[in-house]
Design a binder for these strands. Sequence first.
DNA 1: GATGAATGAGCGTTCATTCAT
DNA 2: TATGAATGAACGCTCATTCAT
Lengths: 221, 221, 221, 221
Amino acid sequence: MTQAPAAVPNDAAPRRRRKEARPQELTAAALSLFVEKGFAATRLDEIAARAGVSKGTLYLYFDSKEALFKAVIAEGVVPAIEEGEAMLERHADDPVTLLREFLYGWWARIGNTELGGIPKLMISEARNFPEVAAYYHETVIHRGLKLIRTVVQRGVEQGVFRPVSTELIGNVFMAPLLHLALWRHSFGSCCARDLDAERFLATWFDLLMHGLGVRDAEPPQ
Amino acid sequence: MTQAPAAVPNDAAPRRRRKEARPQELTAAALSLFVEKGFAATRLDEIAARAGVSKGTLYLYFDSKEALFKAVIAEGVVPAIEEGEAMLERHADDPVTLLREFLYGWWARIGNTELGGIPKLMISEARNFPEVAAYYHETVIHRGLKLIRTVVQRGVEQGVFRPVSTELIGNVFMAPLLHLALWRHSFGSCCARDLDAERFLATWFDLLMHGLGVRDAEPPQ
Amino acid sequence: MTQAPAAVPNDAAPRRRRKEARPQELTAAALSLFVEKGFAATRLDEIAARAGVSKGTLYLYFDSKEALFKAVIAEGVVPAIEEGEAMLERHADDPVTLLREFLYGWWARIGNTELGGIPKLMISEARNFPEVAAYYHETVIHRGLKLIRTVVQRGVEQGVFRPVSTELIGNVFMAPLLHLALWRHSFGSCCARDLDAERFLATWFDLLMHGLGVRDAEPPQ
Amino acid sequence: MTQAPAAVPNDAAPRRRRKEARPQELTAAALSLFVEKGFAATRLDEIAARAGVSKGTLYLYFDSKEALFKAVIAEGVVPAIEEGEAMLERHADDPVTLLREFLYGWWARIGNTELGGIPKLMISEARNFPEVAAYYHETVIHRGLKLIRTVVQRGVEQGVFRPVSTELIGNVFMAPLLHLALWRHSFGSCCARDLDAERFLATWFDLLMHGLGVRDAEPPQ
DNA sequence: GATGAATGAGCGTTCATTCAT
DNA sequence: TATGAATGAACGCTCATTCAT
């Protein structure tokens, strides 16, 4: 509102960054604004201003606002899921540890970072951008759910977990994590206390472990 | 045009139907479109068209698009929570039944109806309309969470549930339900199979009960 | 430049015309500006201002700037050629009169009116709007050339004209007329004396008649 | 990149080619695009791309897009008219030959070359660039018309032509030639057969000669 | 009450122009 | 000399809002 619209930037680094003003700076600015206000309500002026460039510069890197949206999703998403899959291999024989790592690790590396806004953004815009949503679903959601399901199935097979229906266990597992991220970027940012992530995660992990029949699981550290 | 109006005896008749064009028809149309496309991306033309009225008519009932948004939320929300509070009294001494009723009842009466879109809408727009979000938080979320918390606390006190941290149990309880509703109005409507609500609820209820230390709870019917 | 951008129109007729502000008022304003400045260089603001409406009003009647262009051509063109064809029947047996009527009549009813700008406009934009150009070619040019050719062929058959190659005679006949119209809307409007239409037409008619072997044809009146 | 420049002995060599990238290459590219799409609808990017240089290079040679336009006209026009004036002297006593040479020569050396687009361009843009139009009018049109008029006047004085009004005879003479060039760059390039130049010129020359009272003039070769 | 023509501020996008390299 | 990244003013188009009917 009261901030100047990129009027005269500090003369210190006038136009010197150029090539350093990578697309990633633009997508980072776009992500935070899309999460904050939604895709439609975010103006390109704002994105440009937040990235410290002019509006026209956006079009040097992205064909349209929609292309920018796609890039925001694609960029934020690619490395995220791969970490999880790698972790599955490292702790192949310890389902409790895996679930704990996924739960706390997801929060530490995604939910609690800038990327934590992507779930809100995708939920809000999935129906407006089905193509992007499909890409996200294939690339992230589907693989992520499979990851969880695999862990729980192994745990059941190993007798570590009691027998449970595993088909939708991934969705159930993720729901409170997503809830935490969604809350932070909606009510938690505007009109209510943010949830206490530590306690929330602990409550959920405790309930989950008992729900799976594990009585003595311990939270990390 | 310029002929005498003899052909139309009394003006009252042809417009009588309009009386039924209650504000609720307008908010209903608005709700479904806001959920589908988001607040900013929904045009008043579309709302008017879906409600079968002209664009100007909207302004007879609502001062602005934002006022319509507020009405959508207020109207969808008022009766919902009151039912829950009434239910708390009816089954004061049976926490398992209460949780089962809340869980399946919320889905039957809210999540699985038009109102099930409100969580998506509020999450998407909370930061753009903090005032509405605050109203929603006070009127619905806060009271709803308290409801759950009360039930669980009683259950713990009665020894029906094992001792658990109850501060955030409401959020954990609601997270999968909201997840189901959010999914239906995002990915489930555009690019992925909708979740199987029955199985999802069963999986969650089963996990929750075991998580609370109840081993023989049965799903409804 | 110095004229206010449709700021506050005279309060005398504030918004009272509405329905009278027919599309024709808009296409008339558009035609004159397209002719004056070219399609690309004409701004919709200007068209709206000249028509005395706001910019948005244009979109109540035309889907886009290009649609407005098409309408300008279609509207200006439809009645023009039909008059000529009707005339052919009225003077079926008098080729000299027909040519004289076509020549002076075209100038009086087209070249010397607002429609006289259409040739400049179509020549300038044909390659940018091939579809419109094709329509114009079929609807106007083709039929018009055929008209002339028919008259000259009859004249030759009747022995009124000497034998001439008639295939392209229509183009030759029209060229000076179009030249007159093009001149008026280019050099004649900016930096040179407008051509003396009377003398120009007389010179051309005289040369044409002698070229066709008619020695005693007289100009009209 | 960072290697020693030993491989390239003298810096002059690799950029020598640029020396030939004369302004004429730029104006040639600009001319064809201006003719094709009009001045306003032509982007400097396109011109640069067609000339094989970068957009910024244009500004090494021309101050602005408008300056480029002026150069296009000035360059295309300077030599054209001088040839005609020279020819006038060579055939001072043979008006029929002169007219034939002007007619067919104009087509061969101007109309049928890249320069043939200039009339379309000037007609389209005269009112937007009155200064350029005035220059063109003085430098080309005025002198060209005078040339024709002189020839016809001499022919009349010598009794070769019948007495005709000579004031506007130049315009009449040029009109079909210009028509041919305009057609080629408008309808002929987009949606209609190009005119058969040979037959068109023959038809016109035949009609013109008879119109001037010359019965036995022969087309060239 | 109900309409829909009209408005005009605002947005996404383009493109002539600049300038550090 | 030549580049192309960056700019920002300006345009086509949209849409929430108004108001005479």
